[in-house]
C-alpha cells in the first residue's frame, strides 16, 4: 500500500471521527431540547422522587457538564451508561442484544441480495433485450418500488397465516426467514439493476473488444474482465446498504416482531431514554461511517486505476 493511500485512509478516519463527534453533539443537545423527560408518565411521580432520580442519573447537573461527562465516559471507558427506562440494564447490553439480531438478519439479507442480484444482473446484461432481460427488469422494478411494509405484510399473510408454514414472530431462527426475505428483496433488485447497467457499460469498452479479438473465451471475458470491473458501483452501494440493513429496519422489525435495534432505537426516543438514544445513535453513526470507508477502500482493491487521493 502506498504512502498516499495510507495518508488518504488516515484522513478519512480522522474525518469519520469528526463526523461521529458532530452526530453526538447535535443529538445530545437536540434530544435534551425536546419537551418531556424520562421519568414522566401518565401517572406522575412526586417531585421529590423525580429529583432523587435525576440526581441518581446526573440529570440535575447543568447540560454542558452532562455533555462533557458523557463524552469523557465514552472516550475513556466506552461507557454508555445505564438505561433510564429499563432500570438495571446497561445501554451497551441492550444495544448488543439488539445488534446481534439485527446484524444476523442484515448480513444474511445482504448476502442473499448480492448472491442473487449480481448473477441476475449479469444475465440480464448478457441477454440484453431478450425475454429473460425483460422479465428481470420488470421484476426488479417492482421490487425496487414496493415498500417493505407491503412486501412484509404480504409474505406474512401468505406464509404465516394462511399456510402457517412459518412463524409470524422473529423470536426463533425460523421466524427470521420471512424478515430476511423482506429485507433482501429491495437491495437484491437494486443490485441486479446496478450490475446490469454497469456490465453493459463495461461490455462496450475497448479492452473487452480487444480480448474478444484476441480470441479469449466468452467465459473468461465475463468472469475475468467484465464482471470484476462492473462491480465497482455495486461495491459503492453495498457498503452503505449493508450498514442500513444491519442497523435494523424498524418497519420489518415491527411487522415480524423481531427483537432488533430498530425497535429499541425508536422506543428509546419515545421514552426519552437519553443514554439509550445516544448509544444507539453513536453505534449506528459509527457503523455507517465505517461501512462507507470500507467500500471506498475496496474500490482501490477492485480497480487499481482508482486514485484515492
Amino acid at each position: 500500500m502506498s504512502s498516499k493511500t495510507l495518508k488518504y485512509i488516515l484522513k478519512r478516519i480522522l474525518l469519520a471521527i469528526v463526523t461521529v463527534w458532530v452526530v453526538i453533539t447535535v443529538t445530545f443537545f437536540v434530544m435534551h431540547a425536546v419537551p418531556g423527560g424520562p421519568f414522566m408518565g401518565e401517572k406522575a411521580i412526586s417531585a421529590a422522587a423525580q429529583a432523587a432520580l435525576e440526581a441518581k442519573y446526573g440529570l440535575d447537573k447543568p447540560l454542558l457538564q452532562q455533555y462533557f461527562t458523557y463524552l469523557k465516559d465514552i472516550v475513556t471507558r466506552f461507557d454508555f451508561g445505564p438505561s433510564l427506562k429499563q432500570r438495571g440494564r446497561m445501554v451497551i447490553d441492550i444495544i448488543a442484544d439488539g445488534m446481534k439480531t439485527s446484524a444476523r438478519l442484515g448480513v444474511v439479507a445482504a448476502c442473499l441480495a448480492a448472491v442473487i442480484g449480481i448473477p441476475l444482473g449479469a444475465v440480464a446484461a448478457l441477454r440484453r433485450n431478450k425475454l429473460i432481460d425483460k422479465i428481470i427488469m420488470v421484476v426488479t422494478t417492482a421490487f425496487v418500488s414496493m415498500p417493505s411494509f407491503i412486501m412484509g405484510s404480504l409474505l406474512l399473510v401468505v406464509f404465516a397465516i394462511r399456510l402457517a408454514w412459518l412463524p409470524a414472530n422473529g423470536s426463533t431462527a425460523e421466524g427470521l426467514i420471512l424478515p430476511i426475505i423482506t429485507l433482501a428483496l429491495y437491495p437484491m433488485a437494486y443490485i441486479t439493476r446496478l450490475t446490469r447497467s454497469s456490465m453493459l457499460d463495461v461490455l462496450g469498452q475497448d479492452y473487452i473488444r480487444t480480448a474478444k479479438a484476441k480470441g479469449v473465451s466468452g467465459v473468461k471475458i465475463i468472469f475475468g474482465h467484465a464482471l470484476k470491473n462492473s462491480l465497482i458501483p455495486v461495491i459503492t452501494y453495498f457498503g452503505p446498504m449493508l450498514a442500513y440493513i444491519v442497523t435494523g429496519s424498524l418497519v420489518v422489525e415491527q411487522i415480524f416482531a423481531v427483537p432488533g435495534i430498530g425497535r429499541a432505537f425508536v422506543s428509546s426516543i419515545t421514552n426519552r431514554d437519553y443514554p439509550m438514544v445516544m448509544g444507539t445513535t453513536i453505534v449506528l453513526a459509527v457503523l455507517i461511517v465505517v461501512m462507507n470507508l470500507v467500500s471506498d477502500i475496496l474500490y482501490k482493491v477492485v480497480d487499481p486505476r482508482i486514485n484515492l487521493e
Binding site: 422494478t141 421490487f143 412486501m151 426475505i181
Partner: peptide, 17 residues
C-alpha cells in the same frame, strides 16, 4: 422451510411479473 422460501420468492416474482 426450504419449500416455503422458494415459494415465497416465487410468489413475489409472480406478483412483480
Amino acid at each position: 422451510k426450504i419449500l416455503a422460501l422458494v415459494l415465497a420468492l416465487a410468489m413475489v416474482f409472480a406478483l412483480a411479473a
